[in-house]
């Protein structure tokens, strides 16, 4: 097997690569490829950024009051509505 990885091969391992789940040998070959290939560097950086943006969702504001209320009625638990949620 050639030590040289092409862009297509890199692409098929890219997801596990950004998760740090690849074996060290394949990692090394990918890093080698990245030093020589501007395009793959951009793809990796923008992929990381994409995941990053999705993971930084705005903080949640809790379950809306009316939804909690309808849920408790539907479950016949309405007598516990006045308890503090969590």
């Amino acid at each position: 097997m050639s030590d040289h990885l092409d862009c297509q091969q890199l692409l098929s391992s890219i997801s596990e690569f950004v998760d740090g789940e690849l074996d060290p040998e394949l990692c090394r070959r990918i890093e080698q490829h990245l030093t020589e290939c501007e395009n793959c560097r951009i793809v990796i950086n923008t992929l990381r950024k994409t995941i990053d943006l999705y993971q930084h969702q705005p903080a949640s504001e809790g379950l809306p009051r009316e939804i909690r209320q309808r849920l408790f009625y539907r479950l016949h638990l309405e007598d516990f509505l006045n308890h503090d949620p969590a």
Partner: peptide, 17 residues
């Protein structure tokens, strides 16, 4: 039922989201 209500309050927000 009291415990069920607590379970609902613990997980309802995550499940809704």
């Amino acid at each position: 039922r009291h415990e069920l209500a607590r379970m609902v309050d613990l997980y309802s927000e995550k499940i809704y989201r």
